[in-house]
Design a protein around this nucleic acid. Structure first.
Lengths: 185, 185
DNA sequence: TTTAATTTTCATTATTTTCTGAAAATATAG
DNA sequence: CTATATTTTCAGAAAATAATGAAAATTAAA
């Protein structure tokens, strides 16, 4: 085997390991393993891929590929493209990392924070007029959870509305904060 | 039923619905339903609870209560307390929301971001010296993912090291950013 | 020690989630 | 139209995850 072939293999090995690992990381993120793998595959793909390409690469069934692709589309992470003169549907992932992150963050806010806030608001309203020690304590506890999640959610929205370079500037500013500057201030 | 009893019931209903909802929200967060429910129960409990209390309240088995309590302890969200003269173990949750959030955020960084970074670094190192268009593109894509996650992880660490009031100040500052101030700056 | 209370473990069972594959539906070309 | 390519659906199978409950281990009081 000559050097070029070696490099070819090395690259493909790295790619495969990236896809596999991204899959198990997906699990830790509470995301379906296959969905994460398809996403990984599309992120590093140099061309748009068809459902059949994905089935072959990941050795999964059509139904599985199909439903996870739809799920990725519903998250806004993948788009389908149609080439003129061709009947097949092709898929591409957003590759710009900052955009990808914003999409995921907004979706997670929608799925994780918003329903939690709804539940908290409901509990808060139901108990705010009650008397009695325990009811008051409960209501206060719910209120602080609610206040915090509202603030956190709004902050996330602000951040994910930034352009990449604005985010970089903000992050660098935050990293520069020294403890002695913020303590006792 | 008199007014006091009504209020007592209203409070308990709200409490139960909070626990139930927190459980299903937990699922959306990729957290075990029972673990989330035990956590919710402890957050709104006015006293430390025993394993038996928790089993009774949530109608779950001893083994289940036990292992989820241990898991909550390993997250750092719950602590066990022993009362002198008593043999039973009691459990309490951290109730201060900001501390709770910091604990969860650090743990999620450890479980979600750190392993992802490890995988990315591995792929990056394996491919950085390869020639060829596709290998280079791949390496660049991995690099941007890696850079982003590093920055995000470090930022999270900085933020979760803040005191509550510092976080409030920072969040308010971010919320005040107007789009015209940040665009084109 | 012995005894009783309490915690921990773990094989088994139940539940939930994910995947398969083939049939049905839809779309396009000829 | 008819034939063919492609996508979508979904019942059932497989895999993964969570829960039960009883037995074993641990702890501490008597």
């Amino acid at each position: 085997m000559n050097k070029t072939e070696n490099q070819e293999t090395a690259w493909q090995d790295a790619r495969d390991s990236f896809i596999a690992q991204w899959g198990s990381i997906g699990s830790a993120w509470g995301i379906n393993r296959t969905m994460a793998q398809i996403h990984a595959l599309l992120i590093v793909a140099s061309h748009p891929l068809t459902t059949d390409n994905i089935m072959a690469e990941l050795k999964i069934s059509r139904g599985n590929a199909h439903s996870n692709l739809r799920e990725l589309i519903s998250w806004g992470l993948v788009k389908s493209v149609i080439r003129k003169g061709e009947r097949k549907e092709y898929f591409v992932a957003e590759k710009e990392v900052w955009k990808m992150f914003c999409t995921i963050a907004r979706e997670r806010k929608r799925r994780e924070i918003d329903p939690a806030l709804e539940a908290l608001t409901h509990c808060y309203e139901k108990t705010k007029k009650l008397k009695g020690h325990e009811a008051r304590d409960f209501n206060q506890q719910i209120k602080s959870l609610k206040n915090f999640l509202e603030l956190a959610g709004n902050t996330m929205e602000k951040i994910t509305a930034l352009e990449h370079n604005q985010w970089l500037a903000l992050a660098l500013k935050m990293l520069k904060i020294k403890n002695h500057e913020t303590h006792y201030s």
